[in-house]
Computed example of a mutant assay.
Amino acid sequence: MHGEFKVPGGKLVVADLEVVDGKLSDVRVAGDFFLDPDSALDDINIALNGVSSEADTDTIARVVREALPPGAQLLGFSPEAVATTVRRALTHAAGWKDYDWQIIHGEPLAPAVQLALDEVLTTAVGEGRRKPTLRIWEWASPAVILGSFQSLRNEVDREKAAKYGVEVVRRISGGGAMFVEPESAITYSLYVPGELVQGLSFADSYAFLDEWVLEALRALGIEAVYKPLNDITSPHGKIGGAAQKRLGSGAVLHHVTMSYDMDAQKMVKVLRIGREKLSDKGTTSAQKRVDPLRSQTGLSRQEIISYMLKTFVELHGGTASEVTPEEYEEAERLAEQKFSTEKWLRRVP
């Protein structure tokens, strides 16, 4: 069995092992990490032999930690990373390069159609009708996109939204509200088979699926890091946030919105951002939470998107693709019947 795990912001960890009578056997941990003393790697491998194949990541990490000699230095990885890699080997998790990735950078669409496409394309990947896909969104109009479980009345001032021509919609994933305007944000979705995140905790899968974009941002000079659970941030402030939905078909929807040149004053008029949320983020004003990519890179929005796509292809491969006419038709129908309705919007009043 073979498993790999790229530590977010760290190094690659690899585990090869066998299972004999329900126990780990012939465990060989490797990777491009740094470890001192060298002999600690043998200590890790020896300790993992005989561990139950049903052990969870916490148990495996504890075994690794207890096997380390006093003063051992682990750089670019951790006992938890080794545990995650072992679990990915045991669950036959797939790697990025096991798939023929499709890349879509589509035309501007209405917010409800965009959300419907997310559901349609994720379902198609889960049912094997579409290969795993990365899609860059283009917004046709301003919008507030609520998380699946957010209260409409608590989050949005609908009168102000109507005044500024901001459509209010609700997505199928959880998380917080997003405020977007055309050309002001960079939004992308990943539609992935469940096997790609096999062996990862729900929390770990967020950073795992966004590691490629962090690498792109760092190459552009942004000190981007992942702040659990779902924020992409830098020393200058928050850049964006992620959300996920796992469908019954087994596929995972992972989407992210990053601010490029956000109108913060309009955002705080439309969104009801409470004091507790601002305090939780360690700021005193909503404007300070929005740190546009333009101010940190000096690049155009399209230049940043192009570099993101270039980075993804270099790391994982990818072929240019399009939404099919059938997928568009299904999305438009779903937008009309679900995402544009007051019933869906008010599912949490």
Rank of each mutant, 00 (worst) to 15 (best):
Q287M: 10
Q287T: 12
D291E: 15
A286F: 15
Q302K: 15
E330F: 00
H316E: 04
F312E: 00
Y307R: 13
A286P: 01
E322I: 09
T324H: 05
D280M: 10
K281G: 01
V313K: 11
T319F: 02
I304D: 02
E303N: 14
T283P: 00
I304N: 02
S279Q: 10
R294W: 11
T297L: 10
L315R: 04
P292G: 15
R301A: 03
T297K: 09
E314A: 13
P325D: 08
L309I: 12
D280C: 04
R301H: 06
G282V: 06
E322Q: 11
S306K: 07
Q302H: 15
L278W: 04
T283R: 12
T319C: 02
I304W: 01
S306D: 15
I305G: 00
S295G: 13
T311Q: 13
I305K: 02
K281N: 01
G317I: 02
E326T: 09
Y307T: 10
E276I: 11
T297Y: 12
E322L: 08
A320T: 14
V323W: 04
E303I: 07
R301V: 06
H316A: 07
L309T: 04
S300A: 09
Q296H: 04
E330C: 00
S306I: 03
L315Y: 09
K277L: 07
S295W: 12
S279I: 07
S321T: 03
A331I: 06
A331R: 00
R289P: 00
T297V: 12
T311A: 02
S285L: 02
L278K: 07
E276W: 09
T324L: 06
L278D: 12
I305T: 08
L309Y: 01
D291V: 15
L299I: 11
R294A: 09
E322F: 05
H316R: 08
E276V: 11
A286M: 12
E327S: 02
M308V: 14
L315I: 08
F312D: 01
T297G: 06
R301N: 05
M308K: 04
A320V: 14
L309P: 01
S306F: 04
S300W: 06
S321F: 01
S279E: 13
Y307H: 14
S279K: 04
E322A: 14
Q296K: 01
L309F: 00
P292Y: 07
T311G: 09
K310Q: 12
S321P: 03
Y328T: 12
S295A: 14
F312Q: 01
E329W: 06
E322S: 13
Y307G: 03
S285W: 07
V323T: 14
I304Q: 00
L309R: 02
L293F: 11
G318S: 11
M308N: 10
S306A: 15
A331Q: 08
R294Y: 09
E303D: 15
S306T: 10
L278M: 13
V323F: 07
T284E: 15
I305F: 02
V290N: 01
K281Q: 07
Q296M: 08
L315M: 11
H316N: 09
V313G: 04
L299E: 12
E329P: 01
P325G: 07
A331N: 08
T324K: 03
G318W: 03
L293K: 10
Q287H: 08
Q287D: 14
E314P: 05
I304L: 08
